[in-house]
Computed example of a mutant assay.
Amino acid sequence: MTSWQLQEAKNKLSELIDRTLSEGPQIITRHGVEVAVVMPFAQYKKLTAPPQPLGDFFLASPLRHSELNLERNSSTQLRQLEL
């Protein structure tokens, strides 16, 4: 990632945005300290999207209609733990 001093980022905002879109996230620094990141909006949306519910994940699985046996073992036997 490329770093930009805050003053340079303010003066060259259009270039900063263009480089963000072509190269990816850009870091903004203030007094040598990284303080912000500019990133493409689509990437931001992906990072902040709520997680997919587990049920939806399984429903969308390409294995959903396969012949995998996903039944639980109904055995009442308990495993013994060794301490």
Rank of each mutant, 00 (worst) to 15 (best):
M1N: 01
M1K: 00
T2N: 00
T2P: 00
T2R: 08
T2W: 01
T2K: 03
S3A: 07
W4E: 06
W4H: 06
W4Y: 15
Q5C: 00
Q5L: 02
L6F: 06
L6S: 06
A9I: 08
K12T: 06
K12R: 14
L13V: 06
S14N: 11
E15Q: 10
L16A: 05
L16Y: 03
I17H: 01
I17W: 00
I17K: 05
D18F: 02
D18A: 10
S22T: 12
E23V: 02
E23K: 03
G24H: 01
G24Y: 03
P25W: 01
P25N: 00
P25Q: 00
Q26M: 12
I27P: 00
I28T: 02
T29I: 03
R30V: 08
R30H: 11
H31T: 05
G32L: 03
G32W: 03
V35H: 07
V35K: 10
V38N: 09
V38Y: 09
V38S: 12
V38D: 13
M39T: 05
M39P: 00
P40A: 14
F41M: 09
F41L: 11
A42K: 11
A42R: 11
A42N: 13
A42P: 03
Q43S: 10
Q43T: 07
Y44E: 05
K45R: 12
K46L: 12
K46I: 08
L47S: 12
L47K: 11
T48Y: 07
T48L: 09
A49H: 02
A49N: 05
P51L: 07
P51H: 04
P51N: 05
P51S: 08
L54A: 00
L54I: 00
L54N: 02
L54P: 02
G55E: 14
G55M: 13
G55V: 14
G55A: 15
F57G: 06
F57I: 13
F57N: 07
L59P: 01
L59M: 03
L59C: 02
L59S: 05
L59N: 06
S61N: 14
S61W: 10
S61Y: 11
P62Q: 08
P62A: 07
P62Y: 01
L63G: 04
L63A: 14
R64C: 04
H65C: 08
H65V: 06
N69T: 04
N69R: 12
N69I: 05
R72Q: 15
R72V: 12
R72Y: 15
R72H: 15
N73L: 08
N73H: 08
N73Y: 03
N73V: 06
N73Q: 07
S74N: 13
S74C: 00
S75G: 15
T76L: 13
T76G: 15
T76N: 08
L78K: 14
L78W: 04
Q80L: 12
Q80V: 10
L81E: 08
L81M: 09
E82R: 11
E82T: 09
L83P: 10
L83F: 15
L83E: 14
